[in-house]
């Protein structure tokens, strides 16, 4: 990448940009275009869920009640907290507060790992209850075939979401290590910002998954 002769910590921007602000906006725009493709990606699964829930509403509601609503709510809260710490990390990067960036990124990683830990415990209990779709799936009553479809959506959607979390945690970890080593340059600050956009997007996916998967049949 082309570096201007000036030191990176002052006002260096890559040569194809007019100024630092334009470079920052271009980085942000690139991430937003990627996120638009992610909306399509997750959207396909949400569309599938929508059709099958329309076709098998009672079975989806019944199967949904086999999920642990307390753990789901705690995980929702954990992700919202992690979005706050992520936003504060971006704020720290914008204001050049290296220590705040490091602390907030580390907190975000810890909250994300907490989410994955709870998710793992939930998956494990579904395993012991024979609710994993496939040969060993076991569900009482006539709703079993459609309930298996619900659990297929549950594992596909939360699994894809968890994979995004794992990637996000990796990126955040690398940024946290970076913050502990050097000053907050414009380039580093832009990285924190676009990883932040990605992290918030993953939070939004969960904001929709939580009511659709965990809260569907609670009133019955």
């Amino acid at each position: 990448m082309g570096k201007s002769p000036m030191s990176e910590s002052s006002v260096a921007h890559a040569h194809q940009f007019d100024d630092l602000e334009q470079q920052r906006q271009a980085a942000s725009l690139g991430m937003w275009i990627f996120l638009a493709t992610e909306v399509m990606f997750f959207g396909g699964m949400f569309a599938g869920y929508m059709i099958y829930r329309w076709s098998y509403g009672p079975a989806f509601a019944d199967a949904s009640n086999h999920l642990d609503v307390l753990l789901g709510t705690i995980n929702t809260a954990l992700l919202i907290c992690s979005s706050l710490t992520m936003a504060l990390a971006v704020h720290g990067a914008e204001t050049g507060n290296r220590k705040a960036v490091m602390i907030c990124l580390s907190l975000t990683v810890v909250l994300g790992l907490g989410f994955l830990g709870i998710k793992f415990a939930e998956y494990y209990s579904k395993f012991t209850e024979s609710l994993i779709p496939g040969r060993d799936f076991h569900y009482e009553g006539a709703l079993a075939p459609a309930a298996e479809i619900f659990f297929s959506f549950y594992f596909a959607m939360t699994g894809m979401h968890a994979l995004h979390m794992i990637i996000g945690i990796g990126l955040l970890g690398a940024l946290a290590v970076g913050a502990s080593r050097k000053v907050v340059s414009a380039r580093y600050s832009a990285r924190v910002e676009i990883v932040g956009l990605y992290w918030h997007f993953v939070d939004i996916v969960w904001i929709f998954l939580f009511p659709l998967l965990y809260l569907t049949g609670r009133h019955l």
């Binding site: 725009l29 937003w32 275009i33 399509m40 959207g43 396909g44 569309a47 929508m50």
Partner: peptide, 21 residues
Amino acid sequence: LIGIVAGAGVFWLAILLVLLL
């Protein structure tokens, strides 16, 4: 521009969902 890109993602998803329904 950022809002337009964000809106475009949601708009295309809406096309998928509405035509499916």
